[in-house]
Amino acid sequence: MYNEPIFLRPVFKEKIWGGKKLRTVYNYDIPSEQTGEAWVISAHPNGPSVIENGPLKGQTLAEAWESHGELFNKSVDNNEAYPLLVKILDANDDLSVQVHPDDTFAHEVEGVPYGKTECWYVLDAEPGSELILGHNAETKQELEQMMANGEWDKLLRRIKVQPGDFVYVPSGTIHAIGKGIVILETQQSSDMTYRVYDYDRTDADGNQRELHLEKAAAVTTVPHQIPEFNQEESVSVDLNKRKLVQNDYFGVSLWRLNGHVEQTMKADFLQVSVIKGDGVLSLGEKRFAIEKGMHFILPHGIRKFELSGEAEFVVSWV
Results as ranks from 00 to 15, higher is better:
Pro113Cys: 04
Pro48Val: 09
Ala64Lys: 07
Ala106Tyr: 05
Val161Trp: 04
Gly180Asp: 12
Glu108Tyr: 08
His135Glu: 08
Lys215Phe: 10
Arg201His: 02
Val40Leu: 13
Tyr28Pro: 05
Ser236Val: 07
Ala311Tyr: 02
Lys292Asp: 03
Ile159Ser: 02
Glu232His: 12
Tyr26Cys: 01
Gly58Gln: 09
Leu283Met: 10
Gly111Ala: 08
His135Leu: 03
Gly18Gln: 11
Phe72Cys: 04
Ala106Gln: 11
Leu143Gly: 07
Glu4Lys: 13
Asp153Val: 00
Val261Asn: 05
Pro299Ile: 08
Asn46Met: 04
His135Gly: 03
Val40Trp: 14
Glu262Arg: 14
Pro31Asp: 07
Thr60Glu: 06
Asp268Glu: 15
Trp317Leu: 00
Gly259Thr: 05
Gln208Trp: 00
Ser273Tyr: 01
Lys116Glu: 12
Lys15Ser: 02
Lys241Phe: 00
Ile297Thr: 05
Asn27Thr: 07
Asp278Ile: 00
Asn136Met: 02
Asp124Met: 02
Ile88Thr: 03
Gly309Pro: 06
His300Lys: 02
Gly178Arg: 15
Lys304Cys: 00
Glu70Arg: 08
Ile41Glu: 14
Gln34Glu: 14
Asp93Leu: 08
Glu185Gly: 07
Asp165Thr: 05
Ala43Phe: 11
Val196Pro: 11
His224Cys: 00
Gln188Asp: 13
Phe166Ala: 00
Glu130Leu: 07
Ala106Phe: 08
Phe7Pro: 08
Lys286Leu: 00
Gly134Thr: 13
Ser49Ala: 08
Ser171Glu: 12
Ala64Leu: 08
Ala311Asp: 05
His212Cys: 02
Gly47His: 14
Gly134Ala: 10
Ala64Gln: 05
Ser308Tyr: 03
Val109Trp: 06
Thr104Ser: 10
Gly18His: 09
Leu131Cys: 05
Val97Met: 08
Gly259Trp: 04
Ser253Arg: 11
Gly69Phe: 06
Gln225Val: 12
Lys21Val: 04
Val161Glu: 03
Ala81Ser: 15
Phe250Asn: 08
Asn53Ser: 03
Glu4Ala: 05
Leu281Tyr: 07
